[in-house]
Design a protein around this nucleic acid. Structure first.
Lengths: 216, 216
DNA sequence: ACGAACAAAATTGTTGACAATGTTGTTCGA
DNA sequence: TCGAACAACATTGTCAACAATTTTGTTCGT
């Protein structure tokens, strides 16, 4: 059994570098459109340039990084129009997942959704938008998971990764949580009622609302 | 202007190798589940191993290749269940595209769809399933394109690449083109009528039919 | 002072060699 | 004969150096 020591060098360098870099981008440590110089990253993470390079190639196809031939890599900036287009795709894919979840979820899983709904109501009542945003994300993740639709889950996780920056922006908008909450509760109710069509429709109208909000 | 000479070595090796390998997999030159040894591929394509490696990393995240740590790469085999799951995602994403296409397409583009529909009818009448399959693919590609939804187009192209093997299998099934044709004509009519909801519904019921056929 | 040609620096793309890991075949003991 | 330890092989992972390309800064002519 290999011990869980940090693979600082010479072990699983690429995976290490990849995880580090991905997290750095997702957490917003890297400024948007910041240049990503392979040498700097290699030194920063204590791996060789080849490993950084491999990680960058992977991150590019995840849509988190932009690479131009002989010009280098940048953190990709997602414009508002792109965010809208991405959310349109989320709309139909999460709709699919919700419909399946309404049929496939176990009773225990439905209870989890109920609990999440109550926690979200409390977060809004207490005026904690950050907590609410986290729960929001968690709810969507649970619904995806309960659907058992692995392909859709994969696509959605990739799409969501590209939206981190926009999500924070949206959660802090005044009045937004209140409107969002009722839509989320409707989603939960439809799934609990095991009504696939209603679940799909609830998710779609919720994300249609998100799109309106994105457009301001 | 750089001449179009083959970049056999030292030029754009990675892109060359990537294109070559992708095409080889898509055309079915590589047997399913065939082992992809980096050294062999490097020699076969006349590039270095690093380029092949980069190409494999990219193909992995496209879902065409499977890579296991320290064990090598294989051509990924898509099971029937996976093909169904993929087609479910196609169903909602192409539905989204069709709805947008019904609104966004120009009149010239609608004429193209009409022409495609007539060609498909002819191919079925003449009993040419291969021609029909090609036109089928072309029709779906056109609808995607006319939607202007770049994110959805990207996702769909990736999903479709994973289905090449199953598509052929389906097209040659007796009686399948006849059933499929009427569904396709319904899609075209709905888009020409500029009715987004009807277009989305037509696409979804068509692909629901494909799913049934996949399951046999 | 302005623009074009040119040179220098920075950065990515490529190569071959080396290390780590997993796989397979063989030998030895019971 | 069977199974486990071991050794040889095959393959991937990592590294450091080199080549090609692009960008930037400078000089020269007008």
């Amino acid at each position: 059994m290999p011990k869980e020591a940090r693979p600082s060098t010479g072990e699983q360098a690429r995976q290490h570098a990849l995880a580090q870099l991905r997290q750095a981008i997702l957490q917003g440590d890297m400024a948007p459109a910041q240049r990503l110089v392979e040498n700097e990253l290699a030194e920063q993470f204590g791996v060789t340039r080849a490993s950084v390079r491999a990680a960058l190639i992977e991150l590019e196809s995840e849509g988190l990084v932009e690479r131009i031939r002989n010009r280098g890599s940048r953190v990709r900036v997602v414009t508002v129009e792109e965010a809208v287009a991405i959310t349109e795709c989320r709309m139909v894919l999460e709709g699919l997942c919700a419909g399946k979840a309404a049929v496939e979820a176990t009773d225990e899983q439905l209870d989890q959704l109920t609990a999440l709904g109550e926690a979200m109501s409390k977060a809004v009542a207490d005026g904690e938008p950050v907590t609410y945003s986290d729960l929001n994300h968690e709810l969507h993740a649970h619904i995806r998971q309960f659907s058992g639709q692995q392909v859709a889950v994969g696509l959605l996780e990739r799409l969501n990764a590209q939206l981190v920056r926009h999500r924070f922006q949206l959660a802090l908008r005044p009045g937004r949580p209140q409107k969002s909450l009722s839509e989320h509760l409707a989603m939960i109710d439809a799934i609990r009622a095991r009504d696939p069509q209603a679940a799909e429709e609830a998710v779609r109208s919720h994300l249609a609302g998100v799109i309106d909000a994105l457009r301001e």
